[in-house]
Design a binder for these strands. Structure first.
Length: 546
RNA sequence: GCGCCCGUAGCUCAGCCGGAUAGAGCAACGGAUUUCUAAUCCGUGGGUCGGGUGUUCGAGUCACCCCGGGCGCGCCA
């Protein structure tokens, strides 16, 4: 780890710095400054850097040569990948994210896992990994006893046709309430569940209908969010594999019977010692631990995954720790990661709910974001035609919601605020999109097709600063996967947009004299491509006008 | 009781493997518009990094304890 070079903490220290001398001096018991001096003498970086300097207790600072930056920019102009290298060893990654439940509406809470997982998938793919996006839908479980009983006894067909999910939720809730008060209803619902699990044709048909209706609803959200899956293997997909999972684990001795249930104990792991995983209930039924073990099997054996990322809220940490531990005990060598995310809070700093205490439906949030964006467009740019305004409102509104989420560390509980994310100032999607729009405007006014110049000449501080920022894209993207932090990319893009806006104010492009004019055009064009590509990696679109 | 996560400026948040005088945005205040989209830019003020002890040349970052908030802990998912 010694010898890492990072972007300088402060511009006064140049562009890049390394603490390698400090680390090495510590290891060898030497004087860090003296060591740094020796390193600097032997270092040959004259092709890209001014002579490195030693500062402070032994930091080595580098300032990029202007010519080197100019050369790099000229290279990037014709580089499809904008300097981002592919990983040397591509992995096959199954990424599990989103995972909504059937017969329940998607709510704001689903934004995080969905948007985070999607961004990680896009970034991993761009870096050269083979990515399989899997929507592990909650389409099986005890709630279906209630849903089926409600369907048979309480269903309003017209309401179902109008608002399928709302009606499913209504019958579920009402059945639940009745069951709480009436033992007969409770028993009846349980009986429906048993029939379903036994393969009863009528109940299976009802179940299938609720699954289909729910998937249609999910698709509306995914279309708006521009999120797409390669496969959707719900929990039910694993049903016929569950008994063999339990048999296998019993045979291998990993599982044992305790109080009538089949359990796996983790006696050698202190934090799991008193928390066994149940893989078959006393009544013979399976639960989600069983199905998640079957899911690991499938992903590794059938899909050939060597890496599995599961993106869900933090409450499931214990569960997945056990699932991964079981997989390791079974001999699986895959790289398992549980990527957790925090909660979305309301203005009251508690879990975001409606006034009546319900979850806030996802589609309502997205619609409101679009609506609010539309109003701002109306105000700022009334001359655009209506369909254009609609398109732009969607790009900005959805982008704002996604960016508000992705620009923050995934574990942080964050306060959801339309006003902030759409205030269109500061670190928001519209701010970044606006930088892109300004660039596109220049390109349109130029009046001809952009063709990259052979050489680039940079003179003004603002353009050199912007150019250096553009070059850092190649460093920002791979960093995201170190600890699954898309906010690193988001923050980079914000800094890039900021540098561009400064450049835009300080440096006229079209009115500049040659050779500045073509160099600035090239720099602006390249910045636009990085913004577009970077935002795309976050799942965010850019408009041509706004 | 045990375990996990969080606590950084008035507000919302960055700060990845410990590294230089802790950074942004919003809000506040002061400037910039005959100029390619001002949804912008430039500037000013604002901090016992929840508290403490320890490890280290060096701690917002690591270890331990405490306080505060959230969540999870055998047959729901």
């Amino acid at each position: 780890m010694a010898g890492e070079v990072s972007v300088a903490a402060d511009p006064r220290f140049g562009d890049y710095q390394t603490n390698a001398a400090l680390v090495l001096a510590k290891q060898h018991g030497e004087n860090p400054r003296a060591l740094a001096d020796r390193i600097v003498k032997q270092l040959n970086v004259s092709d890209i850097s001014e002579p490195p300097t030693v500062a402070g207790v032994g930091f080595i600072n580098f300032t990029l040569k202007r010519e080197a930056v100019e050369k790099k920019i000229a290279e990037l102009l014709t580089d499809e990948r904008l300097g981002v290298e592919r990983v040397s060893q591509a992995k096959r990654i199954v990424i599990d994210f989103g995972s909504p439940n059937v017969a329940k509406p998607m709510h704001v809470g689903h934004i995080r896992s969905t948007v985070l997982g999607d961004a990680l998938a896009r970034i991993a793919q761009f870096l050269g990994h083979e990515v399989i996006r899997d929507n592990h839908i909650g389409d099986w479980g005890t709630q279906f006893g209630m849903v089926i009983w409600g369907w048979k006894n309480l269903l309003d067909r017209k309401a179902l046709a109008r608002e399928p999910i709302a009606e499913l939720v209504r019958i579920y809730k009402e059945t639940n309430e009745r069951a709480n008060q009436d033992q007969n209803v409770r028993d009846a619902a349980r009986a429906e569940l048993v029939k379903l699990q036994a393969g009863d044709a009528e109940n299976l048909s009802i179940w299938q209908q609720t699954v289909d209706l729910s998937k249609q609803e999910f698709e509306r959200a995914y279309a708006l969010l521009d999120v797409h899956y390669d496969i959707q293997r719900g929990e039910s997909f694993y049903n016929d594999r569950l008994s063999e999972v339990v048999d296998r684990l019993r045979k291998s001795g990993l599982a044992e019977i305790s109080e009538g249930a089949v359990c796996i104990f983790f006696r050698d792991i202190p934090e799991l010692r008193d928390k066994p995983a149940i893989i078959r209930k006393r009544d013979g039924g399976f639960n989600y631990t069983t199905s998640d073990i079957a899911t690991v099997d499938y992903r590794i054996r059938d899909l050939g995954a060597d890496t599995i990322w599961i993106v869900t809220g933090a409450p499931q940490q214990l569960h997945f720790k056990e699932i991964f531990e079981i997989a390791r005990r079974e001999g699986y060598r895959a790289d398992f990661r549980h990527i957790t995310n925090g909660n979305i809070l309301g203005e009251d700093r508690k879990l975001m709910k409606t006034r009546s205490g319900e979850n806030v439906p996802l589609l309502e949030v997205l619609d409101e974001a679009i609506e609010r964006a539309r109003k701002v467009i109306e105000e700022k740019n009334p001359d655009l035609d209506d369909s254009e305004k609609d398109t732009i409102a969607k790009i900005i509104g959805i982008g704002a919601v996604k960016y508000a989420d992705l620009s923050q560390y995934r574990m942080t509980d964050y306060v959801f605020s339309f006003d902030r994310m759409l205030s269109l100032q500061g670190n928001t999607a519209p701010y970044l999109q606006n930088a892109y729009v300004r660039i596109r405007s220049i390109m349109r006014r130029m009046g001809e097709k952009f063709s990259p110049p052979a050489a680039v000449r940079l003179t003004e501080p603002a353009e050199i600063q912007l150019a250096k920022k553009v070059c850092q894209f190649a460093e920002a993207v791979p960093q995201v996967l170190n600890d699954f932090r898309p906010n690193i990319l988001a923050n980079y893009l914000f800094e890039l947009a900021n540098s561009f806006h400064t450049f835009y104010e300080a440096c006229p492009v079209l009115r500049a004299e040659e050779p500045s004019r073509s160099s600035r055009l090239a720099l602006a064009n390249l910045t636009g491509r990085v913004l577009q590509r970077g935002l795309k990696l976050l799942g965010i679109d850019v408009p041509e006008k706004m």
